[in-house]
């Protein structure tokens, strides 16, 4: 396209096969396609092999619903401060938890993302509540009260002190021993539980939240949240019908 200062060559004698530019372009395209495609194809087997039951549902995992023998298992990797997770809670998982109560095993796993400054404190609060047998109550409190602790106006909240105060108020509301709750939030054991979930998620190839697994298989669907919710229910129904 650009103008050249050199005199125009005779178009008849100048035509000697494709130009350097065309050749180089083709080479770059072919090499890039081969390398990227090759890397994708050769590594595809890693993930499915890792999706073992213990990584998905470790011993002592919290459950929102439980069925004998874990006949159908729904695992959700979630981040309490992630807006998408809160949307899924309000529109999908809260209802699934009620409608499938006692028919499926529903296991929430922590996957606090780095970009949400209050996600780890919230995960610690839920785990600490779990130490007093009230994980479910804290899980619900965190999502029901999302607007009160997770966001500051339009933005994702970052005020740890404000959030901690809110977590402690909720802990008191659901009847936790507050001194014990505070100690558990700070204990290395609680932190280790969150880290274990993060490590398991990474092993399973989780990179965002919420990520669902149904009976060990990653569940993915497109469309709106309502579409995904319907697809997830259909998947659970199919698993239950087996």
């Amino acid at each position: 396209m650009p103008r050249t200062s050199r005199p125009k060559r005779n178009p008849v004698t100048a035509r000697r096969g494709p130009s350097l530019n065309v050749v180089l372009t083709a080479v770059v395209v072919l090499v890039a396609a081969a390398v990227l495609g090759g890397v994708l194809v050769t590594n595809r087997s890693d993930e499915s092999a890792a999706a073992t039951q213990d990584t998905l549902v470790p011993n002592g995992a919290h459950t929102l619903s439980k069925v004998e023998g874990d006949r159908v298992t729904l695992v959700e990797f979630l981040d309490f401060q992630c807006p998408a997770c809160a949307t899924y809670y309000a529109n999908v998982t809260k209802q699934i938890e009620q409608d499938y109560q006692g028919r499926i095993t529903f296991v929430p796993r922590n996957f606090p993302l780095r970009m949400h400054p209050l996600a780890v404190p919230a995960a610690l609060a839920a785990e600490a509540a779990g130490k007093q047998g009230k994980y479910r109550e804290m899980y619900h409190a965190l999502y029901e009260g999302y607007d009160q602790w997770a966001v500051e106006g339009e933005r994702i909240g970052a005020d740890t002190d404000r959030a901690t105060a809110w977590f402690e108020r909720s802990a008191a509301d659901i009847g936790l021993d507050l001194a014990r709750f505070r100690a558990d939030v700070r204990s290395p054991e609680t932190r280790a539980a969150v880290d274990r979930d993060l490590a398991d998620g990474a092993k399973l190839g989780v990179s965002g939240t919420p990520t669902f697994f149904v009976d060990g298989e990653r569940f993915e669907a497109g469309g709106t949240v309502a579409d995904v919710g319907r697809a997830l229910r259909a998947r659970l129904d199919a698993a239950l019908a087996r």
Partner: peptide, 17 residues
């Protein structure tokens, strides 16, 4: 200019990678 589109696709390839 003699390699204009080669540079462009290389650029795209790096970003794609």
């Amino acid at each position: 200019r003699r390699v204009h589109s080669a540079v462009l696709v290389l650029w795209y390839a790096v970003i794609a990678a």
